[in-house]
């Protein structure tokens, strides 16, 4: 062991310089050319930064498309999920409450039509997306409050729906922040 201790320490120092010093600096330099310059891409609306492109934010007002429930209340200084097990009675009570709340705010919607992601917490607590169905089901509520025809809102959801990658890989999704910005811009 004695024979190896000195080479081990010296090799460790060398590798720290390369792997922890130079490597991330190099990536950081290249990322300057990426959208957002490696700082995280922000979204600007009416001249001010209203969020990060990839990070979900809280939308609870009836005039906006709601985002998903979040275990960290969309506080992006942290992140995380509920970690509730499928059969946990307290958890199931929470889901039931979310269903009830949704039905109160969205009269006319039938329980069985509620997309499940609207009543379950995401993994990161910062999920930026909804499935197209989860956006569409909120259209009636928003149309009524804003006085915009539902067909226009459905078209808006369609317009902001991102299909699967290359048209065939993975789920379809709608970015809630982009959708709500577009909603505010509708006049």
């Amino acid at each position: 062991m004695k024979r190896y201790i000195l080479p081990a320490i010296r090799l460790t120092v060398v590798l720290i310089v390369v792997l922890a010093g130079i490597f991330p600096l190099f990536i950081s330099a290249i990322a300057k050319m990426a959208p957002g310059k490696g700082d995280g891409e922000t979204v600007t609306h009416n001249g001010r930064i209203v969020g990060y492109a990839n990070i979900g934010q809280k939308f609870t007002g009836d005039k906006y498309f709601w985002s998903r429930p979040s275990a960290v209340d969309y506080n992006a200084a942290g992140s995380g999920g509920s970690n509730k097990g499928a059969a946990n009675p307290d958890y199931l009570k929470t889901v039931q409450e979310r269903i009830d709340t949704f039905l109160v705010h969205n009269p006319g919607v039938r329980k069985e039509d509620i997309p499940v992601e609207l009543v379950t917490a995401s993994a990161s607590g910062l999920d930026p997306d909804l499935s197209p169905a989860a956006a569409d089901i909120q259209v009636a509520r928003i149309a009524k409050i804003r006085g915009i025809p539902a067909t226009r809102l459905h078209a808006l959801v369609d317009q902001y729906t991102k299909g699967p990658l290359l048209g065939m890989l993975g789920p379809s999704k709608v970015n809630v922040l982009q959708l709500n910005i577009a909603l505010d811009d509708l006049k």
Partner: peptide, 15 residues
């Protein structure tokens, strides 16, 4: 009574 066409979504991300 909730149908789950998108599967189990607790602790999952839409994307």
């Amino acid at each position: 009574g909730v149908t789950q066409p998108t599967g189990a979504m607790e602790g999952k991300e839409v994307r």
